[in-house]
Design a protein around this nucleic acid. Sequence first.
DNA 1: TTTTATCCCTTTATTACTTCA
DNA 2: TTTGAAGTAATAAAGGGATAA
Length: 267
Amino acid sequence: MGKDQQDLGLSLSLSFPPNLTPSLVPSSASDPNPEYLRTESIRSFLRGIDVNRPPSTADCEEEAGVSSPNSTISSSVSGKRSERDGNNGDELELERASSHGISDEEDGDASRKKLRLSKDQSAILEECFKEHNTLNPKQKLALAKQLGLRPRQVEVWFQNRRARTKLKQTEVDCEFLKRCCENLTEENRRLQKEVQELRALKLSPQLYMQMNPPTTLTMCPSCERVGVPPNASSTVDPRSHHHSHRHHVPINPWAPSRPFDALHPRS
DNA sequence: TTTTATCCCTTTATTACTTCA
DNA sequence: TTTGAAGTAATAAAGGGATAA
């Protein structure tokens, strides 16, 4: 449990520059009740069809029986689920008590039936998910009881919901990194151009003579950034640099230029 | 060390919706 | 304009491996 929560927490705790994130986050990501769910649920509601209608006696008996058509049967057959359910009295009881409204006719098909949750059920689940994206067993049972679902359904819903959240976050991360890459490419292009210009100057002494003295260019020894000394006339405010420069190192314009990658090696 | 519960990941199946001939 | 097949997106659920208690 701990590992998973950590993973999710890491994924979700990524922060982005405020100017990037909002435009990148898909509207649906923050929408607890997406249009898709709304329209579908509304249609379902209007038709008076609720795939998760409250359990009837027959349904309960059916669920409790051996031949459940739904996931319950397959899950109770599968090792993991049977182990789990067999050791949890409350959960098993709820499993039996809750229903999906599967009739006996439908029961014949052993294939799993996927049932859409109602609008209300989805809304409540979303609300709970907003509060905490994982559930402890008590919360799960309570929620399942409240929604008329099996605890396993609630559990699965939360798992799938976490997966959707992670997927959205991955998309946002990807978009952010793409932009970073674009920005760096652009900066690299700009710097390469600058290097070319400086090399051109180096090759034409006449132009060089018209240049300002090289001492007007200084470099921060710690970060190797080109700066402007305080006495130089410039629009750049030296105080805006990230640390004080008491030791500006004059740049030798004849020194071989280093490409951007050499200045910013990837660790 | 073994057991159990829970997680995530991947895959499958189902449903509802859209597109197009 | 209607209709049915095909395609697509969303998502419920299963199964399996990993991990913590």
